[in-house]
Design a protein around this nucleic acid. Structure first.
Lengths: 143, 143
DNA sequence: AGTACTATCGAGAATGATTCTCGATAGGTG
DNA sequence: CACCTATCGAGAATCATTCTCGATAGTACT
C-alpha cells in the first residue's frame, strides 16, 4: 500500500481541472487503488476500506470508480459473474498482463499495435480509433 | 439472414459430440446469430425472435447463449450498462473490428500477436496463455 | 413407429450488481 | 467565517441474469 506523493499530486491536479471536489472519500479510494497492482471490484474495495473507514458507503465507491473511469484514471474489466473490476491506470496508454494465479497486473507498453493499424487500414479499409487488449498468463513470480 | 447449410452442419455436429440436444430453440438461435455480423444482447436476440417464435422464453436465450459461449461458437463482450453482447464466431481463432457507427463486425486474422508474445516472454517473463483483443473504428462502408 | 428416460423448455420468482432518492454533510470560494 | 451546492450515507429501486419447477420434446432402444 505504498503512497506516492508525486502520483497523488498528479491526479489531485486532474480533479481540480474538471471541477470535481477532492473529497476525503475520493482521496482514500484513489490512494488505495494507486497502491495495489490488481483488479478490484467495487465490493472488494469497499470491504478493504471498511476497517479504516467504516462509514464509507458502497454507493460512494461505485460513484467514485465510475468517475475515475471517465477521467481515465482507472481501467475496468468484466469479471466472472457480471461484476466489473477496476485497476489504477494513470499516465500514458498501455496494456495489461494479468497473472491468472496471483492476479498481479504488469503494465505493457503499447508498441507494435501500429502494425495492426496498418493492416486494418490497408486490408479492411477500417479506420482504427480505439482498441482494448488484455493479456492473461502466468507471471514471473508464479512460474 | 443468410442460412448456410455447410456452417449449420458444422455446429450441429459439435452439439452431438458434447451430448447436448439439438432442440428447435437452439437451432433457431444459432441460425439467427450465424446470419448476422453484429453483437446482440440476449434481450435484443429475444426481441428479434419474438415475431417468428412468440413462445421462445428469455431464459432459454440466456441459457443457450451461455452454452454456445462455452462451446466457443459465440464470443461475448460487455456492452454499456452491464449487458453482455454475443457474436457468432465459429472456426479458427481471430479478432474483431467493430464499426462504431453501424455496428458491423469484421473478422481479423490473428497475425503479429506472436510479436507480443515474444516481448512478454523476454521482457516480462510472462507466459501468455490467453488474450482478448477488440478493435473499434469506422468501417469501409461508413467512411 | 412406439416407449421410456431425462435434458430442455417457458413463466415467473429470486438473486445480485449497480444506480437512484433524499435529507445531511462538508469542499471550496469569496 | 459563511454560503452554496457537490457529494455523502443508507436504503429503496432498477435491471440483467439465474434459478425453480411442472410441462414438453429430443434421443436411444425395442
Amino acid at each position: 500500500m505504498n503512497h506516492r506523493p508525486a502520483e497523488e499530486a498528479s491526479w489531485s491536479r486532474r480533479f481540480a481541472g474538471t471541477g470535481h471536489r477532492l473529497t476525503a472519500q475520493r482521496r482514500v479510494i484513489m490512494r488505495h487503488l494507486a497502491g495495489i497492482r490488481r483488479y478490484l471490484t467495487a465490493r472488494e474495495l469497499h470491504a478493504r476500506l471498511a476497517r479504516s473507514h467504516p462509514r464509507m458507503g458502497l454507493a460512494t465507491v461505485y460513484r467514485t470508480l465510475e468517475m475515475l473511469r471517465e477521467l481515465d484514471l482507472v481501467a475496468s474489466t468484466p469479471r466472472g459473474a457480471g461484476e466489473a473490476a477496476y485497476l489504477y491506470c494513470a499516465g500514458d496508454h498501455h496494456h495489461h498482463a494479468v497473472c491468472t494465479r496471483c492476479g498481479r497486473v504488469d503494465d505493457v507498453p503499447c508498441r507494435s499495435l501500429p502494425g495492426f493499424e496498418r493492416m486494418l487500414s490497408s486490408s479492411y479499409q477500417f479506420r482504427l480509433t480505439e482498441h482494448q487488449l488484455e493479456f492473461y498468463g502466468v507471471c514471473a513470480r508464479c512460474s
